[in-house]
């Protein structure tokens, strides 16, 4: 799916300096990102000139203390928030230049967002929540939507809860449902803001395994987390402090052998 998308965009845009039409070689390319919030005490800089490049198939954990700018960073990638200055390039799209309407369509098709508090719509059943992005983006036929949503729920192992309201299932199941919803339109990127933050360790581990499976299937995942243990199982860890990247750790993941058997290199 993603490859077809890239191919199509390349053919449309013709000449380009890089792999993508805006001259970026990486799937996600954040350039000199600055985000300032106006407060009564003056501007507060949540991000101070961030440069970050993420390639297809990477599983990136963004870690850092509270207030370090993790969520702000992930919001830049999903287009939920806009930078004060700098560029956000995702594939062929200069994300921060999109208006809200185009942004919603772009996000619906290309980024699946998973939140800490699941954010299921309370009056829709689990399967209806999963079908909702397909409905908004009008990608599949009505029949296909139902079938696809059920397949995703099966994949998440919660098909038996398909017709229940979110309030009737556990937090872990809600998060699985939220991941299924994030995958509804088969986006190449999954952005997750502390997806395991509200789950017990066993459930968190199960959810994390789902993410690993998705990466194996070719998805790119950017995840904000507080959980150091989980952060060790990803291919790259980006550490933020006071709005700046203070550490970046790249691992060659070989999960089949051992999650801990990783070759770590520090990217200067």
């Amino acid at each position: 799916m993603f490859r077809r998308w890239l191919k199509r965009n390349r053919s449309v845009n013709g000449a380009s300096n890089g792999r993508y039409r805006n001259g970026n070689d990486h799937l996600i390319d954040l350039r000199q990102l600055v985000k300032a919030y106006q407060t009564e005490a003056g501007p507060f800089f949540a991000l101070k000139g961030i440069n970050l490049k993420i390639d297809t198939g990477e599983f990136v954990a963004v870690v850092g203390k509270s207030g370090s700018g993790k969520s702000t960073l992930i919001n830049m990638i999903t287009g939920i928030d806009r930078p004060t200055s700098g560029d956000v390039l995702v594939g062929d799209t200069v994300v921060h230049t999109l208006n809200e309407g185009r942004m919603a369509v772009w996000r619906g098709r290309h980024v699946g967002v998973v939140f800490q508090f699941f954010q299921m719509l309370p009056t829709l059943t689990v399967i209806e929540n999963v079908m909702l992005p397909m409905d908004f983006c009008n990608i599949y036929s009505m029949r296909e939507r139902q079938e696809r949503a059920m397949r995703l729920l099966e994949q998440m192992d919660i098909a038996n809860h398909a017709n229940k309201l979110p309030s009737a299932i556990s937090g872990g199941e809600q998060q699985r449902a939220a991941i299924a919803r994030a995958l509804a339109n088969d986006p190449p990127i999954i952005a997750a803001d502390e997806p395991t933050g509200n789950l017990d360790s066993k459930t968190a581990d199960a959810v994390f395994e789902l993410f690993e499976k998705l990466v194996d299937e070719g998805k790119t995942i950017v995840m904000v987390t507080h959980d150091r243990d989980l952060a060790r199982r990803v291919t790259r860890t980006v550490t933020l402090a006071d709005g700046e990247i203070v550490d970046e750790l790249v691992r060659e993941r070989n999960r089949l052998q051992s999650p801990l058997a990783l070759t770590e290199t520090i990217d200067a």
Binding site: A104, V105, G108, L132, P133, A182
Partner: peptide, 9 residues
């Protein structure tokens, strides 16, 4: 949430 999953204004 709806906008996050692709709803336009």
């Amino acid at each position: 949430i709806m906008k996050t999953v692709g709803a336009r204004t």
